[in-house]
Computed example of a mutant assay.
Amino acid sequence: MTSVQIAETPLASAQAAILRGPARKAYEAFLDDLAHRGCAALGYRVTGPEPLPRLCVKHLRGSDRVVVAFESSTLAWILLVGPHGTDPDLDVYDRLYELAGIRPPNAHTRTKPSCCTPTGAAPVSAAEIVDSLVRRARALSRRRFP
């Protein structure tokens, strides 16, 4: 397997900087795994309207999640890092829907397919989709982490 280059949005970088102790270690172990195994290091793809099916999630530790977009088979963008919980200002999925510019899909219609495609490839997004998500994350970062 070819190694995967990893980039973080400014928002993900600020969110990851908050992690401490075991949560930080879980994130760092994930980054190493992602660099070596690509999409196999992630848990599942998000379901719903585009671009959600091209984004993958990994449960880190406890309620912490990381959301990743693959710009190519060798470049993964960390879009978001954060808890999944009841606080909409912190919930990683609420931030994801905000980044994607969509409403949350119906919970009853969501599934969790493997991140990798049936052929074992990463679910690559068009560069313009990833660029749009990264720009939105940058803008959100400026509002939340001045």
Rank of each mutant, 00 (worst) to 15 (best):
K25Q: 02
D89C: 03
L99H: 10
P118N: 07
D87R: 06
N106G: 08
D89V: 05
R61W: 07
R54A: 14
T47K: 10
G101F: 06
L80K: 12
M1H: 14
L19E: 00
R24V: 01
V134I: 10
A122T: 06
G120L: 09
A69W: 01
P10D: 13
C56Q: 10
S132I: 06
D32R: 15
L79A: 05
D89S: 12
I129F: 09
Y93S: 09
A26E: 14
A12L: 02
A76N: 05
R61C: 02
A107D: 15
V68F: 13
L52Q: 06
S141I: 06
A23D: 00
A7E: 07
L34S: 04
I129S: 11
E50L: 09
P49H: 09
P105A: 11
I78R: 00
Y93G: 03
L79F: 02
V67A: 08
R65F: 05
D33Q: 11
Y97K: 06
Q15I: 08
D64P: 04
L75Y: 08
G82A: 00
R138A: 15
I129P: 03
L90K: 07
G38T: 04
G62T: 03
L11I: 10
G82V: 02
C39G: 15
T117D: 09
A35N: 14
P10A: 15
A121C: 09
D32P: 04
A12H: 10
K112T: 15
A7I: 04
C116K: 12
V130C: 12
L75M: 03
V4K: 11
Y97M: 02
D131C: 05
P118Q: 13
D89I: 03
L34M: 01
L90Y: 04
A17I: 04
L55F: 08
R103V: 09
L60P: 10
G120T: 10
V66H: 07
E28N: 13
R95A: 10
I18G: 07
V67K: 02
A14V: 05
A126H: 14
K25C: 00
L99Y: 08
V92I: 06
P104Q: 10
A126N: 13
S141Y: 07
L55W: 10
L96R: 11
Y27G: 01
R20M: 11
G120V: 07
R136T: 12
H36R: 15
S63Q: 12
A17E: 09
T74A: 07
G38Y: 08
G21H: 04
L42Q: 13
P22C: 03
R20T: 12
E71M: 03
A100L: 08
P51T: 12
A26I: 13
A121S: 14
T111Q: 14
L42A: 06
T117K: 08
T2P: 12
S114W: 10
L140P: 00
H84W: 00
I6G: 08
E28R: 14
L90N: 07
R24P: 01
I129H: 14
R65H: 01
F70A: 05
D64M: 01
C116I: 03
A16D: 01
H84L: 12
R45V: 12
S141T: 07
A26Y: 11
L99I: 04
S125W: 06
A35M: 08
Q15M: 09
E98P: 00
V124H: 04
Q5H: 15
